[in-house]
Amino acid sequence: MDEFLFLRQEVAPALMSGLWMSIRLILPSAVCGLALGVLVGVLRIYGNHFLKALVGTYVLFFRGFPLLVQLYLWYFGLPHVGIYLSPYMAAVIGFSLCSAAYHSEYVRGAILSIKKGQMMAAKSLGFSHTGAIFYIILPQAIRRALPGSGNELIYLIKYSSLAYMVTCIELTGEGKILASAYFKYMEIFMIVGAIYLLMVSLATWGLNRLEDFVAVPGFERIHD
């Protein structure tokens, strides 16, 4: 009974507020990361020399630096040049930029898989270059990028736990505080892990529904 009370009065409220913070980190990072990733992916293929070099360097650095190092730079590094970010903002910016770098690779690969004739046909109808990319190439490429980008979203759910390293206390952070206070590492982190598993399962289910929803004959999916 003590255990139950402990769970209800100490663990549950703390983890719930941590979970809420996690969700507040994940959702905006997922949306910004995906949007920026699509833009970067497009620029890597269709940009001019300057833009290609720029976004190429971006991807190199943001995939090359460990995410934790990136977060430290945003939160602890930027104040040295006079820019102060809240822990939350530092985490969201860090996650979005890192996530976008990975998304851009999936999008780039997907764009390359679209037949050259699609662009030519669009142009022959009078589409501008941008119009053809937006209305003809991207709707196809994003369908193809979805499995890979979905994977990146799943990954984001878990690396959001790094936010507590820059003092943004989310689910893992709350778990760490509880576990240290009561010395119940096994129990608390099993619960924390299970909550992540639940989030990932929900996201997987949602992504599968999304793939079904945008499925088009000719863009075959592997699962059913």
Partner: peptide, 16 residues
Amino acid sequence: RQKVGMIFQDFNLFDH
């Protein structure tokens, strides 16, 4: 290009 239509050997219909 709107005034000069083009038909391709491999159709190039928009697959989506």
